[in-house]
Write a protein that binds this DNA or RNA. Structure first.
Length: 595
RNA sequence: GGGGCGGUAGCUCAAUUGGUUAGAGUACCGGACUGUCGAUCCGGUGGUUGCGGGUUCGAGUCCCGUCCGCCUCGCCA
């Protein structure tokens, strides 16, 4: 139907006779002279209907083409009188001598040419096929393809095999809520959709596949966020006979190649940081190192004051006082802004944000405003500890350690955004290592796996780990795993670990997680059985594909990097999923709805 | 489940203290126009103000309920 695409024609196509197909992107009419920008996936080409070169009837039809009409045009390429440098085809135009309307359009709710006035997300999702016509969305789809292509090529060269794993799986006891699929043939039994192919990729290592790759869909029935969706994609990898160093090396080389190929930026070696250091310095396990505002422990100084807020905090179990120095911000952090920060940290369970400002005093810098009078005795020591300068603002967190770090970690990010301290051009990659194996839930009085229950303790921890008894909370909390997260500009883009390949170690994990032997047998007997037959040491990682695309394109919303996303309430507004089913279908599946 | 913002023409938005016939831009339709690239100019069609109830002489505006979209806390091994 066409000889070229709409992104293809250049000056050296002059005088060629061509046929183009596409959509009417824009139309500029002058009566007997009409310009139409024709659009397809590849670009825009100006079509000109000129009464001096074509029958008036044709020009008239060209001038009446509604936007988004699907057409085929034939004509001859010629150089434009005035080139348009904004588009690659801007030096030429096609002088139409034939026009075929391939299909007419209703008045479209989304007009791809109107990029600066986007319809609501609701409209865009309901008419996704129109939204995807927008050049920005076409670029997104192409970038997404490019990323998976670079991944497949890179890991192919590295000897990885792409292997598919089941979508209909067993439900796992821990982790996110499962999506369930009723079995027709096994009455009362259920499949779960995979939260990740974790166990299958480990089994593939036990099968001797050695290096595995899959670009796979994962499902977690939890509340969505701007960067989370119930259904999402991972670049999933696993390797046999490797140490942590070897895994980190391959993955780092992959990401470096990805950025070189897709972004045009070559990252240097990735810095590394322990989980403990990340929490202490940044109050979060995925620090954004593009700016400072680090947390500083001032508990010892706080102890010397009579300030009630500090003393109460320090009296708590694992109570602590930390401070952030905001350089040269005394003017911008007004009373109103600081009050807002108190409200902000309350969302994370903190009481508020005590603050003070560093000012010039008679004998050197001092503090003024906020809680200044309560901390006067420690002012100079505090300023020294914080490396404070006149004009800086000090923000405090005082609470139990976990609450304090969480609140200040979130506040740190908010302050950086508010004061525009983030270098948007930076690509700060980072490995976070040495996570704890377990997190203790004080209310439920039990442990949860921080990563997942198949993560190995670090080799030097194994004896200590195997010796741990269920009640030894502090000991268990202190055991370090061989897990790792890849962080980019404060976002977790990948995470993995060296896996357990010893039956006794795996058994111990289940024991410490409070998974009874019978339950472990019931749910994981296949894994325990497999571990009997010479499993290799192994490790791997999974990258969040959607998050990679978000980072590469600088898009701050996961729905905008997916072709067909779901809403906050998990609905697909385009097709109307989830929807009702016939009672007969339920009957067949042995399911009765209580809704 | 909690908190916040929003829903008015196909689309993006406006509408004073609750007050006349709910406006503008754009898209669409008609007309003028031969070098536009946000074409321009003139005219026109287009409304269950998300839905249901209430207060009021009078509701887009106030109250109650509900649905939908987004953000957020909890949640997400």
């Amino acid at each position: 139907m066409r000889t070229h695409t709409c992104g293809e024609l250049r000056a050296d196509h002059e005088a060629q006779r061509v046929a183009l197909c596409g959509w009417v992107h824009a139309r500029r009419g002058h009566g007997k002279l009409v310009f139409v920008d024709l659009r397809d996936r590849y670009g825009l080409t100006q079509i000109v209907f000129d009464a001096e070169d074509a029958p008036e009837e044709l020009v008239d039809r060209g001038g009446r083409l509604p936007l988004e009409t699907c057409v085929r045009v034939e004509g001859v390429v010629r150089r434009r009188r005035d080139a348009n440098p904004k588009i690659p085809t801007g030096e030429v135009e096609v002088v139409a001598d034939a026009l075929e309307v391939l299909s007419e359009t209703a008045n479209p709710p989304v007009i791809p040419a109107h990029e600066d006035e986007l319809p609501s997300e609701e409209v865009r999702m309901r008419h996704r096929y129109l939204d995807l016509r927008r050049p920005a969305m076409q670029r997104m789809l192409a970038t997404r393809h490019r990323i998976t292509k670079v991944a497949r090529d890179f890991f192919d060269r590295e000897g990885f095999l792409e292997i598919e794993t089941p979508v209909l799986c067993r439900s796992t006891p821990e982790g996110a809520r499962d999506f369930l699929v009723p079995s027709r043939k096994q009455a009362g039994m259920w499949y779960a959709l995979p939260q990740s192919p974790q166990l299958f990729k480990q089994l593939l290592m036990m099968s001797g596949c050695d290096k595995y790759l899959q670009i796979c869909r994962c499902f977690r029935d939890e509340e969505p966020r701007f960067d989370r969706q119930a259904e999402f994609s991972q670049i999933d990898l696993e390797m046999s006979f490797v140490t942590r160093e070897q895994v980190l090396d391959v993955m780092e080389r992959f990401v470096r190649e990805l950025w070189r190929e897709v972004v045009g930026f070559e990252p240097g070696p990735f810095p590394r940081m322990s989980y403990h250091e990340a929490m202490e310095r940044f109050g979060i396990d995925r620090p954004d190192t593009r700016y400072g505002l680090e947390l500083v422990d001032v508990s010892d100084l706080a102890q010397k004051t009579d300030f009630r807020v500090f003393r109460d905090a320090l009296a708590k179990e694992r109570g602590t006082v930390r401070a952030i120095r905001v350089p040269d911000a005394a003017d911008r952090l007004t009373r109103k802004v600081l009050d807002g920060y108190s409200k902000f940290v309350q969302e994370f369970g903190a009481g508020g944000v005590p603050w003070t400002k560093i000012v010039a005093g008679e004998s050197g810098p001092g503090v003024e405003g906020g809680v200044a009078k309560f901390i006067a005795p420690i002012a100079s020591a505090l300023i020294e500890r914080m490396e404070g300068e006149v004009g800086d603002v000090l923000l405090f967190g005082a609470d139990a350690r976990s609450v304090c770090l969480k609140a200040l970690g979130e506040l740190r990010q908010k302050v950086a955004r508010d004061l525009d301290l983030i270098d948007e051009s930076a690509w700060n990659f980072l490995w976070v290592l040495d996570f704890p194996m377990f997190e203790y839930d004080g209310e439920e009085r039990r442990f949860y796996a921080m990563h997942h229950p198949f993560t190995s303790p670090k080799s030097e921890e194994i004896e200590r780990f195997l010796g741990a008894e269920t009640g030894e909370i502090e000991l268990i909390e202190s055991i370090v795993s061989d897990g790792y997260d890849m962080v980019l500009n404060g976002n977790e883009i990948g995470g993995g670990s060296i896996r357990i390949h010893r039956q006794d170690v795996q058994k111990k994990v289940f024991e410490l997680l409070g998974i009874s032997e019978s339950e472990a047998h019931e749910r994981f007997s296949f894994l325990m059985e497999a571990l009997r037959y010479g499993p290799p040491p192994m490790g791997g990682i999974a990258f969040g594909l959607d998050r990679l695309v978000m980072q590469v394109l600088g898009i701050d919303n996961i729905r905008d990097v997916m072709a067909f996303p779901k809403t906050h309430t998990g609905q697909d507004l385009l097709t109307g999923a989830p929807g009702p089913v016939d009672p007969e279908q339920l009957e067949e599946l042995h399911v009765r709805s209580t809704a």
